[in-house]
Structure formats: C-alpha cells, structure tokens
Amino acid sequence: MISKSKRINGVSPPINDERSTVLELRRVVRQYEGTPPVRAVDNVDLRIATGELVAIVGPSGSGKSTLLNLIGTLDRPTSGRLFVDGVDTSELSDSALAGLRSARIGFVFQQFHLLSGMTAVENVAAGLLYRGISRTERRKRSTEVLKRVGLGHRLSHLPNKLSGGERQRVAIARALVGDPAIVLADEPTGNLDSKTSNEIVELMHRLHADGSTIVVITHDKELAANLPRQISIRDGKLESDSTNRTPPLSVVQGAGR
C-alpha cells in the first residue's frame, strides 16, 4: 500500500514536447451510480502541457463538465489516475486536494459564482484566502490582477453593480490571482452576449500569450476553432484531439475497457 503511493511508480509519462506536462489523465473513468449507471467520463487519456490553451467541445451531456471537475480535483475518478505536476492525486487526502486547488488550479464558472456583498477586489482576494497570505498582500495582488483584466476602475464595485462581462472578468481575475498552473473554465461565455463573449475570448488569448495554461469548455464552434488545440468528447469518450502529440494511450495500446 505504502510503496504503491509513491509517485508515478517510475513509469514516466511519454514526453514528446519540450514543455513540461502540467496534467495527465490515465484511463480515467467517472461513473455515476444509478439504474443504469452512467459513465459520464469513459476511459479518458489526456495530457496537457504548460502554456497550452485547450478547448473542450462536445454535445450536451457528453461529459465535459464532469471531465473538467475531475481535472480540477473537485471530483474523483471512479477508476484511473490523474497526475498534477507529476503527483498522483488519487493518493491524496481530501484536504491535500484542497491544498492542490488553492495553489495550482483556478476555476471560472458559467454563472460567475462571485460572492455577493463583496467588492470586486474582495472577490478576487478570495482566490488567495486559503493560501495563508495576509490581507494586505491579498488586496495588493488582487488590485494588480484586476487592472490586468481591464477592471482597474471597478475595484470597489459590488457584483450586482457590474455587467455580465465585468463579472466574468472579476471571476477570471480570481482564478488568476493565485498564479495557478492551470485555469479551468466551464462555458465562461455561456451567459454572455456575443460582443461580451468576444471580449472574454480576447482576454483568454492575451492571458495565453502571457503564459497561462487554460482549458475551456465551450459550445461555440467558432470560439473553439480559434484556439490552438481542440478536444472533442462524445458519450464520455475522447472523440478527437487536434494535437497528435498526445494521442490517447488506449488507442496506442489498442486496449479496450
């Protein structure tokens, strides 16, 4: 048991990219119990490297959100493994995963999920709350990031005084403020009109150019087409990956379930 809990067991992931791997899924399955049980994520192999900007596309109910929650460690695989920074997350305790999220992962939600009653700065600062960083330092960094996303003039606004696009930019700032290894966005433009959506997409491109690693779920074909890499999902299975650098392992090994 203890020896099994060692990292990666000496099986290093195949590196065919000079950039380091942030995240790797190996034969990940997430099955929801019920009659019949639903395999929302079915035997997925996936590797994401530092600095990538990835779109996940697929029809409704195909398992995109489930996959993103697994990547973000909000959920655990029924089977298979998820490595973050080379650490096998299946071995980690619940609070260790919380620590991982606080340090390495930023989330952006379709419904923004800002905390009402808190100003923009306070909302962004909440992204550093569970890092043991002092209040003044949190505010300082939050102000900087809000300026970066173009909201330097909205620091003390409450969420209900902000437009949808501004709210989502606050949420993006909150995801970025902890300087995460990867930002996960589940349909970040789903609640926005097309003009505001474009601003958010533009912002993501800019952040990508600055070196952030971003995975974004989208229904928007055009948006996805403009991103460097697209992964499409159907019935919980990886259908296609525009990058052939990381072919699904199951395909390579010709293994079934």
């Binding site: 920074d85 305790s93 260790a96 995963l97 606080s102 890092r131 043991g132």
Partner: peptide
C-alpha cells in the same frame, strides 16, 4: 470517493 489519503506537496491554510 473520500478515502483518507496522503498529504500532498500543497497545503491550504486560513489565517
């Protein structure tokens, strides 16, 4: 889904 496990290299802390 919530077995006890190892502590990882990252830790949450709230002042």
């Amino acid at each position: 889904p919530f077995t006890k496990g190892k502590s990882g290299p990252w830790k949450s802390q709230l002042r």
